[in-house]
Amino acid sequence: MAAHDANLSLGRRMKAPAATRTRHLRKWGLPVETLVLGLTLALWIVMALTTSTFLTANNVVNILRQVSIDSIIAFGVLFPILIRGIDLSVGSVVALSGVVCASLLTAGVPIPLAIGLTLLLGVAIGSLNAFSVYRLGIPAFIITLAGLQAFRGGAFLVSDGTSVFGLPKALSTFARAEWLGIPSLFWSMLIIGLVLHFILSRTRTGRYMLAMGSNHESARRAGINIKRIVFFAYIISSVTACIAGMLLMSRMSIGSPTAGVAYELNAIAAAVVGGASLFGGRGSVLGTFIGALLFATIANAANLLGIDSFWQMVATGVLIAAVVYVDNLHKRRQSGVK
């Protein structure tokens, strides 16, 4: 953050020849989303040309399934990031919501009620995070790290340490269903993505999140209800994590307390690679989807090419670092001539 501010003041001091140079640079300074989209497309093309298994209906459907749940979690995590916060608890919330929903179902609670209660749990967790951040002033990083521990513990306690088995048929078949040749999971992701995209790009609430993340003081002075925005962002994050948890439960046909370990990191990585700034104020649902798609493609490609799983992890890590570096370079260039 210090570096960020330093950039700003630096920018102010060297303003003179700004206007022309800014315009010139913007021409070739491509936004990171475009870069990542290009990378993903390139990977798809290379895989399609070099393997006979990649561009098959079956494999594409597999990728769509694989990317869906990851994307949903990443969409949610994007919102706290937009307001310059973070939510590290989503992976554990995925597990907790899965075992809670599965336990309710196996205890005979009707499906709609079990889903509703699980979503309420998401609202409660999001509110708790937001309350801690907004009212108690605990840094989001700390409180959601605590959540990462506590909700995972909760998942173990609820499930007695083992997987919850015996879901109603309707639920365990849901994740396997396809409509118009597209997996139900992907439809779910599409609907959630569209709703969140709509909120972010078309409503005041979405715009205030961007404003708040970009310049908290400016948002406050503009009379924006900061409290409402903070609650909104964290509730979106937890509720989407609960939806993802239930979808994962449906896909695995068990509620597993070990589900979703480290998913928060994948989700954050997808958002960041998709153009979100960890300093807030910037990011999009579409970009996040592209980020998640890139990671899912890499995982799938590594499997199809038989690349060692560990190399795949290394490659993913290098990729995150590279994309963020390029993005920073781009931004520094921009603010340096501002």
């Binding site: 695995m252 995982a299 199809l304």
Partner: peptide, 16 residues
């Protein structure tokens, strides 16, 4: 030791 990853890996193996 991630069930979901085991599932994805299996799908990819079957496909490959």
């Amino acid at each position: 030791n991630d069930t979901a990853k085991a599932m994805n890996d299996t799908l990819d193996l079957l496909n490959r």
